[in-house]
Design a protein around this nucleic acid. Sequence first.
DNA 1: TGTCACGCTGAGCGATCGCTTAGTTTGGGC
DNA 2: GCCCAAACTAAGCGATCGCTCAGCGTGACA
Lengths: 195, 195
Amino acid sequence: MSTDDMLPARQRLLEAAQKSFADKGFHGTSTRDIASAAGLSPGGVYVHHRSKEDMLFELSLAGHEQIVRLLEEAKADHPDDPRQQLHRMVHQLVLMHARDNSVARVVNYELAALNAPHREQIDALRHRIQELLREAIESGVTAGVFVVDEVGMTANAISGMSVDVGRWYRPDAHWTPERLAVHFADLALRMVSAA
Amino acid sequence: MSTDDMLPARQRLLEAAQKSFADKGFHGTSTRDIASAAGLSPGGVYVHHRSKEDMLFELSLAGHEQIVRLLEEAKADHPDDPRQQLHRMVHQLVLMHARDNSVARVVNYELAALNAPHREQIDALRHRIQELLREAIESGVTAGVFVVDEVGMTANAISGMSVDVGRWYRPDAHWTPERLAVHFADLALRMVSAA
DNA sequence: TGTCACGCTGAGCGATCGCTTAGTTTGGGC
DNA sequence: GCCCAAACTAAGCGATCGCTCAGCGTGACA
């Protein structure tokens, strides 16, 4: 075991669930997997969490809120410079998807396992995320800084290349999350500039 | 039921598995789900397929081979024009990920459910796919047509935005697969051109 | 008409699933 | 020293899992 021994059991369970959901999927993970990874017996899970789906929701909610926060900060940091705003947004997004890669996977690939009310809450946050990206591009077009013929599609392409980092990225000394983030943010600016 | 009634049972089973794997995941799909969607009893699956994992492998293999074929055709169609070659590659890739979006999901998101020997075969095809994209960019750089400082990262960004289409795309009268493909291919060219 | 191969059913095997519950342990407040 | 709440275990519930298998029906061929 690691330093996780010192954390409260509730936290240890969430971290164990996070890891397992990320690399085996929600349905590929048993509550016994989670319990034993957290150093508890199978019944120990339910002292701290109502259900397996509830753990997924808690993790998914925290992950989505983190992304919304990052994008809103990026927006607030550069209120009058669309280029810097978009650059910072993509930088933060890619950084997060690389560095907290297991969080990113749960956020983007385990939505189908949420129940209906939980799914609705998450969908509202996802809508907000797309909206922030779209507005950043839109404002650059309005200011005449960006040249984009299809704002919505371009927003999807930029968020897509960023989100997909969570799928393929593996920690690497050469391709650090920071280097990736800078390069992807530069690419995003190319995507919104005239050819 | 649809016209699927006319197809041989083996094919019907594969199509049912495809659909279910795509929207509930491999572990979220039971062999009984597959059987009943194909109009068979639970035991009927094993007349035609050795195991559930074997069905996943067959689907994954066919999907990956389709992608390799599309990219190799794109390469052969424009052997001396890096811009047209890359444009065609991204166009084909996005078209496929939008149009055959359930195939794309199985291809990209169910790799972890494959057993070790099957996973190795698939990984070889995935390596080939990345190689084809990377070479297309590389040849443009060599020819002085593209301006790219990190070929590998750029290849990952371009394949990432294309692959991610499989995750979010839903059939839509306005955003047809064809329109998406053209727009994403244009964006890819922006990504490899000087700012 | 007899028969044999083949597609398929339906019962069911052993394992594992999410989750509950009775009971044990433990540590802080009186 | 006593007590109670909270943390946790071990056993086990009913359901469902992937998969097997004995047997049934049917169509092609002798």
